[in-house]
Design a protein around this nucleic acid. Structure first.
Lengths: 125, 125
DNA sequence: CGTCTGTCTCGACGTTCGTCAAATCAGAGA
DNA sequence: TCTCTGATTTGACGAACGTCGAGACAGACG
């Protein structure tokens, strides 16, 4: 699956071009590490990883805090804190519409992280 | 041939042989989050992210601590601590050969993490 | 206007993290 | 054996984290 033969993605992936040569292919510069590590860090908590998934996989591409919070045995402020962490890491976006606040994933950075981690299936020599 | 007992990874990830439905496709179960979050957490430090890259991209697939340590403005014990963190997260393997200790990436878990983060470009197959 | 509901901020708490210096362990070689 | 070098462990410290309760803020609705 290294080459997605077949359809090209609908959206432009220019962001990937400059940002993520795979971790295992060339050494990550300190500056890149400093920028991307916080994103990994944000995903390094089980609650936030689930929150991220719930948001990214939600119908319509967004999830309301009111449906996120009751999915955990945690208080509102704690969930709010985790969402803020995800937001500050650039992983999600928040928007208030009336009474409720909706969170939406940012696919670009997800792709960036995935690209960094991608491992070429050992092009057998 | 047998590995040094003290250097074996703490986490056994064999159970996760079946790879990762993308984060954005289906909601990550709590159990999966609990298993994978520590790996992201381990990558959530700039020094460890660079270490991981240096190891994974090294020639021969392995890197000696003796070449890792001088790449940072940190003491030996600190680098050793970070390497232990990567090892306990299941991201790398260590092996002592004579005087030196070599670290080697574990591609399986890297692929797992990349798969979790992968964002399918909406285009249907 | 006042009140209610949903969400966030603030302050506090115990825990974990990143770092170092000192001590210890593991081999290599004289 | 003894010593030297490379790597890890131990113990300590301040900083950051995850969590909570109490309070503040933002809209909706009478």
């Amino acid at each position: 699956m290294s080459k997605q033969a077949g359809l090209l993605p609908v959206i432009d992936l220019t962001a990937d071009a400059q940002c993520c040569p795979p971790l295992a292919q060339s050494r990550v510069p300190a500056q890149t590490a400093a920028v991307l590590a916080p994103a990994f860090k944000a995903l390094g908590d089980p609650v936030r990883l689930q929150l991220m998934s719930m948001i990214a996989s939600a119908e319509g591409g967004e999830a309301c805090v009111c449906e996120l919070t009751p999915a955990f045995d945690l208080t509102g402020p704690t969930i709010s804190h985790h969402l803020r962490t995800l937001r500050e890491a650039g992983l999600v976006d928040a928007e208030r519409r009336g009474t409720w606040v909706y969170y939406r994933a940012r696919p670009a950075i997800l792709r960036q992280l995935a690209g960094l981690l991608s491992v070429e299936p050992a092009a057998v020599a």
